[in-house]
């Protein structure tokens, strides 16, 4: 991969955190990034933790006993939450990136009808599905498991 062109970033990390006058999608973008970074951090540890299985059942069971602690159960839910949100919000972003769910091309007159009539309902549907999955995952991790 080659380096990209450089632009000045006046606000830096602070600029990511404030959505300002932008809509709820701007805040989803921030959560998307935080969730993505969290999942990446977890995944790098998960490679080593799951590799313990090559040392046999005793080593595996010892590792799983440690991970049965309530703190790690909460961590498992946080990862599930992050994955469900990031995956479904990412699917929404890919659909929009590829030109689906953006409505017909029209003159951009504020308030943008495409944004309100097509993209906003898509966002709501995707977030409802994510919420249902997160609830099911939480029930599985904390109640049924």
């Amino acid at each position: 991969m080659r380096e990209t062109r450089q632009f000045d970033n006046h606000l830096g990390i602070i600029g990511w955190l404030g959505g300002g006058r932008w809509g709820i999608e701007r805040y989803l973008y921030i959560i998307h990034r935080v969730a993505g970074l969290g999942i990446l951090l977890f995944f790098m540890m998960h490679i080593f933790e799951s590799s313990v299985r090559i040392f046999g059942p005793e080593s595996w069971d010892t590792a799983m006993d440690v991970l049965a602690h309530p703190v790690f159960k909460l961590g498992e839910f946080v990862v599930f939450f992050g994955f469900a949100f990031h995956a479904l919000n990412g699917l929404r972003l890919i659909l929009i990136e590829l030109g689906f769910a953006v409505g017909k091309a029209e003159e951009p007159v504020y308030p943008y009808r495409s944004s309100l009539n097509v993209q906003r309902p898509l966002m709501i549907v995707v977030m409802v599905i994510a919420a249902v999955l997160i609830l099911a995952g939480g029930m599985n991790i904390f109640v049924l498991d």
């Binding site: 991969m1 380096e3 990209t4 450089q6 632009f7 000045d8 970033n9 830096g12 990390i13 990034r33 993505g36 970074l37 999942i39 990446l40 995944f43």
Partner: peptide, 21 residues
């Protein structure tokens, strides 16, 4: 996917070309 995303975020902070490489 994860490292490309991390790279995108880091590049938004405006590192020099050498740092980007």
């Amino acid at each position: 996917h994860g490292f490309f995303g991390l790279r995108t975020i880091l590049f938004e902070l405006g590192p020099s070309r050498g740092a980007q490489r």
